[in-house]
């Protein structure tokens, strides 16, 4: 509807990350450190020269390492309008300074900028000595640099993972993930499946493929937790053209596989149903999610569930 004004998920993510960075970064990490300073005995004309030469918009007036005032372009304009460019900087500088500490977080400076009508903040160390200057521009630059570092780190992980198959030469390359699933471990139920889904996404699978594989393997994982004698294993083999997921256990086996595939048929106990499972939809769901599904089950050797997803026909 109003796609242009609403934020996409990815934009919303970046904004949240910027806010986060405001709390992570220290002022000392984004401030300008080679500060052009003025001394109290300088005249406004000297200040004008320095400010113009260094292409800055203001400079602090420093006496014995302590900031006693600040000269901004506005102060320069005032002195020019008065025709008093020969006066001392102390006559025109702004006193009663608003400052910030170098070891404070960037967000504190942002609050000060929002509350007070100032364009720059002198930054002091613990001993109130001037160590830098901070403008809104410095903060923007610092946040952008930090964001880019973040982005590059995640890109690198994704790049490495998604090029894994190209980087390794063999006649047939695959990556195998294995998870042991413990009987009745409802607390961790679904954890393995979420790891599998994340791995697929990192390897470059589309959202739909990762979601469908995730749902299928999650149902299989819950089946191992609910229905087995001793738990079981999940094994996921990832190849460039297909994903094969397998859930296997050593018993008790499914009595009637055909019946187990009927929507709503369930052998789960009331206790399991109270946990939100055992609706008799597990295998039905799995069949709906993957391209191929097959079950081998016997009382002697337990159950093997195979699920295959082909990647060729969809964009991976």
């Amino acid at each position: 509807m109003s796609d242009q004004v609403t934020l996409s998920d990815s934009d919303a993510g970046i904004i949240t990350r910027v806010e986060e960075l405001g709390y992570e970064l220290k002022i000392s990490q984004v401030m300008t450190t080679n500060v052009v300073t003025l001394s109290p005995d300088m005249h406004m004309i000297d200040a004008l020269d320095l400010i113009q030469k260094n292409r800055i918009s203001g400079a602090p007036v420093v006496q014995n390492g302590e900031v006693i005032g600040i000269i901004s372009t506005e102060d320069l304009i005032r002195s020019l309008r008065d025709g008093r460019i020969d006066r001392k900087v102390t006559d025109y500088m702004t006193r009663g300074l608003i400052t910030a500490k170098a070891n404070e977080k960037v967000v504190e400076a942002l609050k000060t900028f929002a509350k007070k009508n100032v364009g720059r903040l002198p930054i002091l160390d613990e001993n109130n000595k001037l160590v830098g200057m901070l403008t809104k521009g410095d903060i923007t630059n610092g946040l952008l640099t930090a964001l880019q570092r973040d982005y590059q780190a995640e890109e690198l992980i994704r790049y490495r993972a998604s090029h894994l198959f190209e980087d390794i030469e063999s006649d047939r390359t695959s990556l195998i993930l294995r998870y042991r699933i413990i009987k009745d471990d409802f607390l961790h139920g679904g954890a393995a499946s979420n790891h599998i889904k994340k791995a697929l996404q990192r390897l470059g699978a589309s959202r739909q493929i990762a979601r469908r594989c995730g749902i299928a393997v999650y149902e299989a994982e819950m089946n191992l937790i609910i229905h087995t004698t001793n738990g079981g294993f999940l094994r996921v083999e990832i190849e460039p053209h297909k994903i094969t997921m397998e859930a296997y256990d050593d018993g008790p086996g499914i009595e009637d596989v055909e019946k187990a595939l009927t929507p709503g048929f369930s052998t789960a106990t009331e206790q399991v149903r109270n946990k939100g499972f055992g609706a008799g939809m597990g295998l039905v769901n799995i069949r709906g999610c993957v391209d191929e599904m097959s079950i081998k089950s016997s009382k002697e050797s337990g159950t093997n569930l195979y699920m295959t997803m082909y990647l060729d026909k969809t964009s991976s």
Partner: peptide
């Protein structure tokens, strides 16, 4: 229970 969150993540 925690499965609600895991289900939500998967879906």
């Amino acid at each position: 229970n925690p499965q609600v969150v895991r289900t939500a993540l998967i879906a």
